[in-house]
C-alpha cells in the first residue's frame, strides 16, 4: 500500500486536513513545541503507555462511524474476517482493528487505514471525513497527538455485486 497510500493521502490531505500531516512527516518523534497541550501522558509522577492495539481499535471504530466506509482491510484480511466471524466464540470487537496500522510513540501516533468505500460517492469526501473523525477520536480518547492519517482506498463496493458478510459495515 506504500505508494498508493501516499498519493491518496497527499491528494485528499491537500483538500482539507493536510496541515497536521505535514507538521511532522517522519511519524512519531519527540515533539519540541507541543509539550503543553498533550503532556498529560507523561507527568512527573509517572508515564502512561498506550498500546498500539488500543489506538488501532479506536481508529478502526472511528473510521467505521463514517457512513461512506463500507468495510475495512485489504482483500485477504476481509476474507479472513468473514471466516473468523463464522467461528463460534469469536468476538465482534476483535475485528475492530482490521485494516488499521498504527505507530504509537510517547506522545504521538500515526495511523494507516485500508478502507473500502461505496460506489457513487466522492472518495475525497469520505477520506476527509474519516481523517477528521479518526484524529478527533484518537486525540480525544488517548491524549496522543495524531501526526498523520494515511488512507488507502483498496476497493470500492458496488451494491448487488456480491453479498459480503455484514459483519463490519456498521458497529
Amino acid at each position: 500500500m506504500a505508494a498508493d497510500a501516499g498519493n491518496e493521502a497527499a491528494r485528499a490531505g491537500s483538500t482539507g486536513t493536510g496541515e497536521r500531516g505535514q507538521s511532522a512527516p517522519n511519524g512519531p518523534s519527540r515533539p519540541v513545541g507541543s509539550a503543553g497541550t498533550h503532556a498529560s501522558l507523561s507527568s512527573e509522577h509517572g508515564q502512561t503507555r498506550i498500546a498500539d492495539g488500543v489506538v488501532a481499535k479506536i481508529a478502526g471504530m472511528a473510521a467505521r462511524e463514517i457512513p461512506g466506509v463500507y468495510s475495512m482491510g485489504t482483500g485477504l484480511a476481509r476474507r479472513m474476517g468473514q471466516i473468523r466471524s463464522l467461528v463460534p466464540g469469536g468476538t465482534d470487537t476483535s475485528s475492530a482493528s482490521q485494516g488499521v496500522g498504527v505507530e504509537v510513540g510517547e506522545r504521538e501516533a500515526a495511523v494507516d487505514l485500508d478502507v473500502v468505500t461505496w460506489y457513487g460517492q466522492s472518495i475525497v469526501e469520505v477520506s476527509d471525513a474519516v481523517r477528521a473523525n479518526v484524529i478527533q477520536r484518537v486525540e480525544g480518547m488517548t491524549g496522543l497527538h495524531v501526526v498523520e492519517v494515511n488512507i488507502s482506498v483498496d476497493d470500492i463496493y458496488v451494491e448487488g455485486e456480491e453479498s459480503e458478510s455484514k459483519e463490519s459495515r456498521v458497529q
Binding site: P67, G120, Q121, V126
Partner: peptide, 17 residues
C-alpha cells in the same frame, strides 16, 4: 456524485466542503 458532507453516523445533505 452526491453532494454530502459525511460525519460520524450521518450525512449532511446538499453541502460539499
Amino acid at each position: 456524485v452526491p453532494a454530502v458532507t459525511q460525519v460520524p453516523g450521518d450525512a449532511i445533505v446538499g453541502v460539499a466542503l
